[in-house]
Design a protein around this nucleic acid. Structure first.
Lengths: 208, 208
DNA sequence: TAGACTTGTTTCAAGTGTGAAACAAGATGA
DNA sequence: TCATCTTGTTTCACACTTGAAACAAGTCTA
């Protein structure tokens, strides 16, 4: 097993491998080699072996990988065996949509609170999730044991929101506001910028 | 002006620059240098100049860039001066959320149709947008002049959907299904994988 | 036992992106 | 005029990722 630092690209691929293994498992397969996995899902066999070798020796020489065992290992590596409680900041259109979406997606993430500064929204419930006053974000995070924050506020408030939830002890943040955020090194911020993606399509369509 | 091929990373940065310029313009500034832009928004001045130089000579030596002029140029480069008509395939939770979200986001993208295979959904309207039978996707795309497709169906149907809309002449696709897609080279597919992003956060939280 | 597989590991070449440095040419202001 | 600024452009070093190749060690099958 290698002990170098693990690239985020590697863990992203682990997610992909896990999906592939789930598909194979549903088909009843018991083992799979890196070569077959690569061929079937358009991956690279050497990369698969390298990625997995970062975390341990999961395969058997001459055989390949036992699918159910490897699924379990990757699930554990990615922390998908532990539950997380999510708070979404911003009960606007996007925040509500995400609440709805995450709410029914079966995963280890559960949305347990919404936050907004708009008094008209505070106190209401959306998809069974209560909207709290953002001023109380710190105490609600503590009380509800929230460990993941989703930022769904306009760009100009996003940095401030990040700082507030960081103060409340949040270490993992998903940011949908179209702006880069500055976080301290112990807080992981994952940004999804729908605007940039759309504008990228727009650029492509504008090419002659 | 350079004539090399333009990296997608470059056009993504153009989107960022445009936002920065909008912010400066609102503050009443007339010109800005690459150095000041970089300092203010945590960018790299050399990169800014290189990126812009890919598309023309927009700056004035000794002065910098005229903000409104540059905004207009970037808007044109990214094709944000042309309108696009969007069809969303999959009227499930995510598709509905996206319809709602895009619907009120002021941009040059307008959602004009939803598609689904579920007879119970076909014919209804969501946020003022009608749900059509996916079997009629080709003719509706033609009739409504749709040029952008958004895939919001379960992973196992995504590839099939991509092939159908490609046959109908769509050249730009935004994919939210958690699976990689194989497209012909003249079709641009931009994938946003929320699952991988979440699992990446999960991995981070699982680290000791 | 012999041959066919496959993993885990190392090494290497190629491609890509980044950031710094340098500099001529043009613009501005004192 | 002269000093100062900034762009557009080139060059370079560095880092990262990918994909290929090679090989010893271990496993399976005939």
């Amino acid at each position: 097993m290698k002990t170098e630092k693990i690239s985020e690209l590697t863990t992203n691929r682990l997610s992909v491998y896990l999906r592939c293994l789930n598909e194979l498992s549903e088909e009843g397969a018991k083992t799979v080699s890196s070569g077959k996995l690569a061929k079937r899902f358009h991956l690279n066999s050497a990369q698969i072996r390298k990625d997995l070798a970062c975390f341990g020796e999961f395969g058997v020489r001459g055989v390949g990988y036992y699918i159910d065992d490897l699924r379990e290992q990757i699930t554990k590596i990615l922390g998908l065996d532990k539950d997380h409680r999510v708070g979404i900041i911003g009960a606007g259109r996007l925040g509500m949509a995400l609440t709805d979406y995450y709410g029914l997606t079966q995963s280890n993430f559960e949305v347990v609170a919404l936050f907004d500064a708009d008094k008209k929204k505070i106190g209401s419930t959306i998809g069974g999730v209560e909207v709290f006053d953002f001023k109380k974000v710190k105490q609600v995070i503590k009380k509800e044991k929230i460990d993941v924050a989703v930022i769904a506020v306009p760009a100009e408030y996003a940095q401030k929101v990040l700082e507030e939830v960081s103060k409340a002890g949040i270490k993992a943040v998903m940011n949908f506001a179209p702006t880069p955020l500055q976080a301290s090194s112990d807080v992981k911020v994952k940004s999804i910028d729908l605007t940039i993606s759309l504008e990228s399509l727009s650029y492509f369509l504008a090419q002659p």
